[in-house]
Amino acid sequence: MPPALQIEQLSKTYESGFKALNSVNLTIERGELFALLGPNGAGKTTLISVICGLVRASAGTVRVHGHHWTEEYRTARRLIGLVPQELTTESFETVSATVNFSRGLYGLPKDPARIEQILKDLSLWEKRDSRIMTLSGGMKRRVLIAKALAHEPKVLFLDEPTAGVDVELRRDMWDVVRRLKASGVTIILTTHYIEEAEEMADRVGVITKGEIILVEEKNALMRKLGRKQLVLQLVEPLARLPESLAGYDLTLAAAGDELTYTYDSQGERTGITALMSELREAGIHFRDLQTRQDSLEKIFVNLVRQSQ
């Protein structure tokens, strides 16, 4: 059985000369929830746009369930649903009219029962006769999801579905995504919230400057991302670390006045309490301490460095 999505050597250079995608290779299995992480301008939206036929590729191929995305565009596109990042909705249409329009556009006959189910699943049923412009931003996002689901796609792209939505709605959106995944839909989610990937993804890909620099199981990545550091400013500089502290992941700054302890904040035990008493016993005093965690930006930078 061919994978949900097979991307080979996909490149896109815009007319301006900007290289948005550089030889991207990526395979996404059926039923998977794949989170594509990357800073703004990394190429996430361009990648989705090329796959969905909104932007022309400069080179490379995409196959959706084994179907070539331009040569067999009818079959390939029929399998894809796209929820764009921007809230691009009709203003004057009603919710049910716009969702029915999407289904027809994808070549399917009317199916009121199916549309009713989709609208109910997304808590839009009560609003079915409301004009879209009267809905809140969160509801409009749901309308976009309903439109994308109207033709029962097998592969769903969610381009930053929770950008600019409040915390409660984000939780709601995650529930929606989980239900979709449970129904067997392959989901590709782009985001720059690490938390979002952590909540839901099976695998995570990191894209930067148009290149996929890492694809990893989420759990493995989270371990990397979960690392935290405790920095101690020492009263008296140390020449070297005492033997009693050899069991800790400690580094001493060159001047000997700063001690850095790296630990796993996700772990069962951080080891901080034990370290503190060891330090006291060894007679090492400190006048200040701070903890720090890598920001997502920094994690990206580190990942880029590691991959080179």
């Binding site: 036929g53 079959t75 390939a76 029929r78 764009p84 009709e90």
Partner: peptide, 13 residues
């Protein structure tokens, strides 16, 4: 203008 054209362009039409 509104951006909704994306749907028509990505449809199997």
């Amino acid at each position: 203008f509104t951006g909704t054209i994306f749907e028509v362009l990505s449809a199997p039409a």
